[in-house]
């Protein structure tokens, strides 16, 4: 193996942390969704690392399912963004206060 598996899992943890930061800190709904994609990609990386470490192709199959769910999430999430934008132009989440009272 070209690198120890710990390095791959550590890289995955760093990317996931960046995704968590982006999701919590950004106030633009599209960039929050793209931060979720960064987190899913980090999880895929750790699945591939474990698949290689344990010499088992099932990790790659699970990563494929994660990619399928990410595609579904992108479609529904961006549909929601378009619907929200039709009611109120802009993508800031701080202005979405209709459900507050």
């Amino acid at each position: 193996m070209i690198v120890p598996v710990g390095v791959i899992i550590g890289l995955s943890a760093v990317l996931f942390g960046i995704g968590v930061f982006g999701f919590l800190a950004r106030r633009n709904i599209i960039l929050m969704l793209i931060s979720i994609e960064i987190m899913l990609n980090a999880v895929n990386l750790s699945l591939i690392g474990f698949s290689r470490h344990l010499a088992d192709p099932r990790g790659q199959v699970l990563a494929l399912f994660v990619i399928a769910v990410a595609a579904a999430e992108a479609a529904v999430g961006l549909g929601l963004v378009i619907a929200l934008n039709r009611n109120r132009p802009g993508t800031g989440v701080a202005e979405l206060t209709e459900l507050k009272w």
Partner: peptide, 12 residues
């Protein structure tokens, strides 16, 4: 948010 991201990475 930065503290949460960094602490997640540190825990991992």
């Amino acid at each position: 948010a930065a503290a949460i991201g960094i602490s997640f990475t540190a825990l991992a």
